[in-house]
């Protein structure tokens, strides 16, 4: 199944893409999706251990199964704000 993955912040900057499509077997988990994403976009490899993954607009853990037609979001931590207090 083809899964649409939206990339945010640094994930978008590193790949130059706002969205990628990942081909996943049925019953694949979020961890599987991360692995596929890493091989499709190697620029994301260093980021993936620390990103938050949302499946259908909801925080997802690594062991969660990615449902058919899911919309996945990759949300890396963002440091920015004001000056160093």
């Amino acid at each position: 199944m083809l899964i649409r993955v939206r990339l945010f912040a640094l994930a978008r900057k590193q790949t130059g893409l706002a969205e990628v499509e990942i081909d996943l077997p049925e019953e694949a988990t979020v961890a599987d999706l991360k692995a596929r994403l890493g091989s499709k976009c190697p620029q994301l490899l260093p980021l993936l251990p620390n990103v938050m993954i949302a499946v259908d607009a909801e925080y997802a853990t690594d062991d969660q199964v990615v449902p058919l037609d899911a919309e996945v979001a990759v949300i890396p931590p963002v440091s920015g704000g004001g000056p160093l207090p």
Partner: peptide, 20 residues
């Protein structure tokens, strides 16, 4: 709860490095 571990230092740019 969202980000249990910080990213490795230097990986995520600050505004000074990444722009805003």
């Amino acid at each position: 709860c969202l980000y249990p571990e910080p990213p490795p230092p230097g990986l995520v740019p600050s505004c000074a490095e990444g722009g805003v």
